[in-house]
Design a binder for these strands. Sequence first.
DNA 1: ATGAAAGCGCTAACAG
DNA 2: CTGTTAGCGCTTTCAT
Lengths: 334, 334
Amino acid sequence: MGATIKDVARVASVSIATVSRILNNQPGYSEETKRKVMKAIKELGYQPNAVARGLINKKTQTIGVLFPDISSMLSSAILGGIEEVTHEHGNSVIVCHTAAQGNKTMKYIQLLREKRVDAILWVSEAMREEYYEVLLDMNIPVVLISTESNRFQFPYVKVSDKSASFSATEYMIKNGHQKIGMISGPKEDLISGFPRYEGYKLALHEYGIEMKEERVVFSNGFDYDAGKESFKKLINHSPEITGVVVASDEMAMGAIVAAYRLGIDVPDDLSIIGYDNLKLAEMAVPPLTTVAQPLHELGQTGAEMLFKMIETGEKARNIILPHSIIERDSVRPL
Amino acid sequence: MGATIKDVARVASVSIATVSRILNNQPGYSEETKRKVMKAIKELGYQPNAVARGLINKKTQTIGVLFPDISSMLSSAILGGIEEVTHEHGNSVIVCHTAAQGNKTMKYIQLLREKRVDAILWVSEAMREEYYEVLLDMNIPVVLISTESNRFQFPYVKVSDKSASFSATEYMIKNGHQKIGMISGPKEDLISGFPRYEGYKLALHEYGIEMKEERVVFSNGFDYDAGKESFKKLINHSPEITGVVVASDEMAMGAIVAAYRLGIDVPDDLSIIGYDNLKLAEMAVPPLTTVAQPLHELGQTGAEMLFKMIETGEKARNIILPHSIIERDSVRPL
DNA sequence: ATGAAAGCGCTAACAG
DNA sequence: CTGTTAGCGCTTTCAT
């Protein structure tokens, strides 16, 4: 089982050095010997051992991806993009979803370190001092996807949450809405919570609309149930609103259902705009108007930055990917 | 950068063998030396090199997971289960989504082979002779998740598609429905297409209901759009039906929307039952009654079987996981 | 154009 | 209890 380069060399009656040269097409062999070697390889069903290669080359052709416990719909789309370009580069990806309970992030970083991954993609999780230190110590390229760090100098690719949320709110305004509520994520979430809230406030401000505190509710998450609950609170405090900006599609789905239960028709009685453009947005009734994050592209771009860093050794520049409004049927022009 | 076992040995003034013993807690060292060594390790920030270990142990503590291009919602739930137990066993997972266009499956198998993964989890894709051969040649444990192979002897864990579909249909019948349609997956899909169709037929037969060909439509996929299109066809051919069994939740979502557009109320005019119990099932309006596959558990169980095989060397037994009906609001008792 | 030999970092006999 | 040594499978000088 498992022929080695030695076996190939023996069968082809050449040295292992020659086989190695042929395998890595480095100069220094005749066509004649190449034929012999290729024949031996075929005969033996030889497969190069990437582990041995990794040991000597100090490159495993493997990158690690760290995901926090975000919506699986978000993460799988991003992962798709990552995998695509990773495979194009002949590498593979080890995934680590840092589970909800018990912060395993540190443990996973250690794991990736022992496995000697060539680089790390850090998705959607806030960078922290303790992580930063070991990541830095590992001395490999790291890029952040859908998160940023001013304090820690890793390049990132993301959508501007504030700006995207601004656009969502602006879209409402341009559709004639003035009394606009918001279902926000957690205020303490500095990545996707607070910035989206800020974008909302900013849009109101820029369009000269007074911002009322009771028109925004901060959920403690971004999921469906959070959306449902938050909607009830919101509509309770501020029944006068005609539109609501929701910080995630999942929450928006919850809001639509909660509204439906209360006999509030979307979009006839109330307009709703989501955030993310998950696949489920188009499945909503009514189909959800939302501001799209290019999820797949986020993954692709992050991976591309990573490989550029691996190849050139230079640090990549930060990239802000454009968001866009996907017009469907949940917002009614007033 | 990167202290090695040698450095540790030098700093602790012992031999590398002793360090190795301590690292792998094998007998043969005094508490005294252990302290010295641990101190050196800490000082140097030493991290064992899993690549070197893998080379000598012929175990990489890494498993490969092959996914076809199935719904991301399905795959991410299964992957979650896989990751959970894989990490519990101190292993990591390399994921390979065999993309839609261009069958890269073979290429990925080769990749996993070169990387010397210890085992492979084969998810939701039909096994084929050409894959089987190289998998067998790799001589590592393989388990199939959500797919089976009678012809090829790999153990599997799955839900009985036929039986689950039987249950879904039976549920309709027990709720008083007699004229029951079906939106099936592709007839040629021997894993999730045909068996679910069979379960439907069987249930009708067992309950003495005549099966009418025009009441079933075979989609060419399992997604939302397929569901929408298929529903239109179905209701066109067979407007008399009072219930429809749909072979996936995504298609069921499509069916609900298509029905809605046609002014058909679910469940008042028509009952619908889905299949999978994806997260989106509860987000539907009305919330979708469906037959649940224990997705996370499918992943867990598959991984557990794999590790048992790795540890004991014995082949695992096939496991059929139970499905269950999740009652929500899309089926109305007649 | 080809081969011999020295490791990559680690584990596992085998000696002491 | 501890050290010496021989590799794991491969790449890479350095000779020839």
